[in-house]
Design a protein around this nucleic acid. Sequence first.
DNA 1: CAGCCCATGTAACGCGTTACATGATTAG
DNA 2: CTAATCATGTAACGCGTTACATGGGCTG
Lengths: 183, 183
Amino acid sequence: MSLKHILLGILQQPHSGYDVKKTFDHVFSNFWAAHLSQIYPQLKRLTDQGLLTVQDAESSKGPNKKVYQTTAKGQRELVDWLAHGPVTNTEKLAYLAQTFFLGALESHADRIQFMEQLLLHMQHWHQTLCAIQDQVKAEYPNYPHGLPDEEFYPNLTLMLGVKKVGAKVAWVQESLALLQERQ
Amino acid sequence: MSLKHILLGILQQPHSGYDVKKTFDHVFSNFWAAHLSQIYPQLKRLTDQGLLTVQDAESSKGPNKKVYQTTAKGQRELVDWLAHGPVTNTEKLAYLAQTFFLGALESHADRIQFMEQLLLHMQHWHQTLCAIQDQVKAEYPNYPHGLPDEEFYPNLTLMLGVKKVGAKVAWVQESLALLQERQ
DNA sequence: CAGCCCATGTAACGCGTTACATGATTAG
DNA sequence: CTAATCATGTAACGCGTTACATGGGCTG
């Protein structure tokens, strides 16, 4: 039941469903993904439950928008979620499951190739996150202490992203070296 | 569609549904969780599709078991999954979403408490993984080079687990220090 | 005028979670 | 005898993915 709470969090500021999707892609892609086909029905359900308000609005480009915003009741739900303590053990890493069974591939070259693909992916991801962090650093010279609240907590997730993906890059490189030794 | 492939991977060796669940809890808990109520129907479906075989067997303790094993067709499906390249961007970290919105908690003490709970969780998880790794190291003096294939690939997932959770512990500690500075 | 971005949805199907339901054996 | 472990499932409901469906406006 986290999509609900993430929407309540994002919609503390007013946004359309389409904008919410962009927020997922740009800001949350590090740890959560959602499709438009999930977001639209969920927004309607939360509005029916009195956790969001809707308002029609004109768009600068394209058709009219529906702008949603979290209500006081929705805000209470969000705070309850946070106050209930960290929700853990949500992780599902398909590529690690694949790594576990990598021995099922007949050829050594195929296993190496798998890891090389993984390396490219992780390096790309790491560079993306580092670039975003560099931007934030450039904007706030006293980083991370000088960040205002509305940037500080989001930035914590960025800091974990960089560390975590860095660890993954190092791991793939180490794994590749071990694999190549094995022949 | 990964549960299917993980089952095909586990059932390269014969196991009952109940045993498969224990494998998830002990070996996969690092990166994948599954409930018995998912596993049982899925095993039936995969058997109907000719990807698994079933056989009745007696149990040493308790009622009779149904022992499943991957067929040649199932093995081909597993290999296809691996050959298709790493499946990435599956991650959903609810506690990071919570961290993102931590500013919604009114009191500073509540935010500190959230991070302290997260620290305890991550430290516990890290110790568990390190203990397992120490066991493997003790068993194979030439670790990790001397591992046989059936241990080598699973051990790669353990190595990432240790690195990744280590990065998370360091991050929570750093975040706590930053939070305490902010007052 | 073709292709992309803006904008909102529905439908089908499979995965994930919690609760319910049953019953045997074993360790304390 | 009580609690834990062994063993297998069903039901209800919500989440996640892919495909389908529509149509306006902007850029090259």
